[in-house]
Each structure stands twice: as structure tokens, then as C-alpha cells.
Design a protein around this nucleic acid. Structure first.
Lengths: 203, 203
DNA sequence: GATCGTCTGGGACAGTTGACCCACTTGGCA
DNA sequence: TGCCAAGTGGGTCAACTGTCCCAGACGATC
């Protein structure tokens, strides 16, 4: 293998590690398994990373940074808030159903990070990313539907994240997509009930 | 250590393994760590279990069987359905807040079981236990409050489990009990809205 | 009290793991 | 073309893992 851009090799190893984790879990992500997946040698690994722990730190950080609930780009204009929430959640669930292993990896990495001394804060950061994505969705959706939230948007965001996490975990276990969509319908309606029509003269 | 009842020693080792997992995660539950925690020798372990895998299978099965959402025993009579749901969920959350590590172990074991070929079915069984506990709660609570569920009770149970899972995961990450209780309030009210007064002449 | 099956202790084994090292190759540059 | 640093391959190390073995201790039974 010819010369690689050096900082790219770290990215290649991280990507390979993610594939290994998807196939064999976090505990299967040994240095040798990763370099085999990446088609490199052990020396290359330790040339790019000081240690296996450092690579895992990079991996978690990469996951935290790169992940946003991108499903929220599908908001159709001229919908009411319930429909907007429903579509957004449905889009999110669509990603999970299409690639359950990915979300399984995310949850396993979350637990791994919670266990690892230097990474617990990153785990919280990963969650903060979820929350801010949800807040963004809620603000945009409310503006589009002409409503305001009756309670602080941060609390509504927590409801969204709680819902998606619960739905995800249940789906990972029993792979019952129909049931997941029913829960989603209910959650969208319930959360939409927290919005009220916006007035020119606010409160 | 004197003679132990043979089938009890398996239980002792499983208990020790659970303590080790609580302290160091699933990957830290090595044979040596477990026997050290139990105060036994390696030979005792392999006298009780054919292999480490067999012990883990027993451990997961024990967790599946022994766990029911015992929090549901606190239903105060003469409450409306919303209060009953709220109290039950609050009692459940109380357990989590009091002993977060336990629920963290449960979730890690769930992911471990999902990854392990022979144990995936046990993971689904673990979830089925959750569902049946929730169904039982919902039936008892509805009878006590004099209401019936507008949708199949199994679907309401899925809402309960989804809610508790989501709340649990969020709490494990940020340990924000106040936020967890607010989500719980909302969920109890929303799910209670799926009940309607019972009539003598049920259709 | 001798005996026998049950249980335990310590040691050993092969396999795997993360980390490291040194000789070698490679590609760009003078 | 020759040089040199960047990058690589293969081998090696100690630590740790699950598993196994065997000599011995223990307790119940006769």
C-alpha cells in the first residue's frame, strides 16, 4: 500500500474499527481485527495511534461529532405541528429500520464510553448533540406550523430523545417495525399537544 | 471454604459475576475476576460450570427470570388512572435513581445477549418479561380505576416499556433525576389519556 | 476409624491481546 | 542518480485469558 495522507490513515482505521464493531461488538474491536479489516499491519496502527485506547477515544469523538439526527430535513411545509413531528420521527425510524446495526453500535459505544474513565464526558456530549438536534427540529417545526411550545423547548427535546431511544432499543430487540411505528404515532400526537397557536402579542 | 450445596455455588458465582459486571462492565467479567469476587479458586468455577460461556448463559437466564418490574406493587387504591400510572412509573424510576448501576448492567447485558449467538432469544425473552409486567400493571390499574383501554393493552404496554427504557438511558447518561421525573409526568398523563371510563355493557 | 466420592488449591497450558522494535521499502527531492 | 525521512512488515514481548490437570483435603457413609 502506497503512501497515505497520514491523517487519513487514522480516519481509515476508525472506519475499519466501526465496521468491526458493527460485525463483532465493541469487545471484538481488537487491534489485530481492525488492521485486518483495514488491510494494514500492526505497525501501521501504532504509527497512526499511540495506543488502542487513543484510537477508541478518536472513534467515539468522531461518532459524537459526525452524528446529528439528519432525518430532520424532511419537514414538509404547510403541515400542522403533529404531522411535522410525525414525519420527522418517522424519518428517523426509517434510518433505524434500514440499518439497525448502526444504531446498535451507537448504543454499545454509549455504554462503552460511560464505562471508560476519560470518555464519560464524551458520552454526555453525544447526548447533548442529540438534544440540540431535537431542539433545532422543534424550533423549526414550531415556526413552520405557527405554534409555540407551552413548556421550555429543552424539555420537549428531552421527550423527543427519550422517545427515540426507547423506540430504538425496543426495535433492536424484537425488530417489530409495525409496533415501533405505532408507538411513534402516539408519541408524535402526545408531544404535539404541548404546542399552542402562536399569537402576535406573546403572553 | 467448606462444602457448599453444589447448585448454590453456581448461584454464588452468578451473584459474584453480577457484582463484577456492575463494577467493571461485561468485558471485565473474566473468570478470574469472578472467582476472586466470590472468594473461590479457578477450579471451583470449572467444577460448577463447564465453561465461562455457560455461566454467562445462566447469568442472563437468571436475570431474565428474576426480574420483574416490582415497582408496580405500590398502586394506591381510590386513585384515577393517571395517578396510578404516575405512581407506578415513579416507583420504577425511584429504583433506578437509587441504584443506577443495576439498570446499567441490565442494558449492557441486553446488548451482550443480542450479540451472543445462543442468547439472542433470551434477550427477546427478557423484553417479553418487561411487556408482561407492564400488561399486568395496566390491567390491575385499569380495574382499580374503573377504566378500560381504548387500544389493545399490549400496545399500551409497549408505550410503558418504551418510556421507561428511554427515561432510563437518559438518566444513565446525565443523571438528571429532575428531568427524568418531568418526562415521567408527561408520559403518565399521555398514556392515561388512552383510557376511558368503563361501561357496564361493554361492546 | 477406614474409605470413597465430592470438592478445592495451585500450577500449567495454549491462545490472544496490546505494545514495541528493528530492518527494510518507498517515494519525493536535490 | 543518490539520499533521506516517512512509512511498513514481520517478529517478539509480557500480560492476560479460558481451560485443564492432579495431588490433596474434606465430609459423609459403612
Amino acid at each position: 500500500m502506497s503512501r497515505i495522507a497520514s491523517q487519513d490513515r487514522r480516519a481509515l482505521l476508525v472506519q475499519a474499527a466501526l465496521r468491526v464493531i458493527a460485525a463483532n461488538g465493541v469487545s471484538g474491536a481488537t487491534t489485530r481485527a481492525i488492521v485486518a479489516e483495514a488491510g494494514m499491519s500492526l505497525a501501521s496502527f501504532h504509527y497512526a495511534f499511540r495506543s488502542h485506547d487513543e484510537m477508541m477515544r478518536d472513534l467515539v469523538a468522531h461518532v459524537v461529532g459526525g452524528q446529528s439526527i439528519a432525518a430532520f430535513a424532511v419537514l414538509k411545509p404547510e403541515s400542522d405541528i403533529r404531522t411535522l413531528l410525525h414525519d420527522a420521527l418517522q424519518s428517523f425510524l426509517g434510518y433505524i429500520v434500514a440499518d439497525p446495526e448502526h444504531e446498535q453500535v451507537m448504543q454499545e459505544l454509549l455504554h462503552y464510553a460511560l464505562r471508560t474513565p476519560g470518555l464519560a464526558s464524551l458520552a454526555r456530549e453525544q447526548y447533548a448533540t442529540y438534544y440540540s438536534s431535537a431542539v433545532e427540529l422543534l424550533v423549526v417545526a414550531a415556526a413552520q406550523a405557527g405554534v409555540v411550545w407551552r413548556i421550555p423547548v429543552a424539555e420537549v427535546a428531552r421527550l423527543i430523545v427519550t422517545t427515540t431511544d426507547g423506540i430504538t432499543l425496543a426495535y433492536l430487540v424484537d425488530r417489530d417495525a409495525a409496533a415501533a411505528y405505532r408507538v411513534l404515532d402516539f408519541a408524535a400526537a402526545a408531544i404535539a399537544g404541548l404546542a399552542e397557536p402562536a399569537l402576535e402579542f406573546a403572553e
